[in-house]
Amino acid sequence: MDERRFFAGINWPGTAVFVLVGLAWEVVIRSGLLEYEYLPAPSAIGLGLGQLAREGTLAPDIAHTLIAVAIGWTVAIAVGISLGFLLGLSPTARRYSLASIEVLRPMPGVAFAPVGLLLFGFSLKTEMVVTILPVLWPVLVNTMGGVSGVHPRLYDVSRTFRLSRKDTILHVILPAAMPPIVVGARISLSLALVLTVVAEMVGNPEGLGYGIVREQQALRPDLMFAYIVTVGFIGIVLNAGMLALAETVFPSSRQLRSPQ
């Protein structure tokens, strides 16, 4: 991507607002306009980030959280896409399982943290217990919707060209359902990050989530916010990465319009 297009692609007004808010925050804290003992100025947060990086605690924490997210998300989308596909293809299967899905879906994964702790103690597996079930739903529901929403005309076309069932699924249904599946995977990825961090806060004491809690208990708000900002930044990077991945594997998925 040439430089001009990269710079043109940046949301300048958005970035400007962000920078202005940051500056306002800095001014407000420095001038003593607002005094919250545990709300640091952006400059303090920046210094905190530098300190964590120098101490060598930031990188391993990032690595741990990323690995947990990667594993949890991969398992969730593997199960979610497969199940979603099967449910999408079969109205009968949908009729029988929708009630169960609607019951299981609202269960907060965080509520399973104690269960995870009892089963797996302080380990990565506990984070998985908290992460996988809720992260399953966006990609499952979106896949199911995408597959069942493939336009009937495409089935007519497959039949008039005498495609086998397998070829219809591989070459027509799967690509047609890709845009909603990708959206579901992206939502699941963001959710996986959130839940992994939470699992690290209430369950397994490792990674960025634990970093937040640890610095909170150590009464170091600047370091705590440094961790929070890092989580936010990772969220942005993961989302952008997911978009780029989707764009390379399915080049037209971004420009796909819905049929008239």
């Binding site: 336009h151 005309r153 495409l154 007519d156 076309v157 008039t160 060209f161 005498r162 027509v172 690509p175 047609a176 890709m178 399915f250 037209s252 998925s253 796909l256 319009r257 049929p259 008239q260």
Partner: peptide, 17 residues
């Protein structure tokens, strides 16, 4: 296999991707 249908709604009948 030697008969093909062409549909009215071309937008839905083509593989847009």
């Amino acid at each position: 296999d030697n008969v093909v249908i062409v549909f009215q709604d071309y937008s839905n009948a083509l593989l847009q991707w």
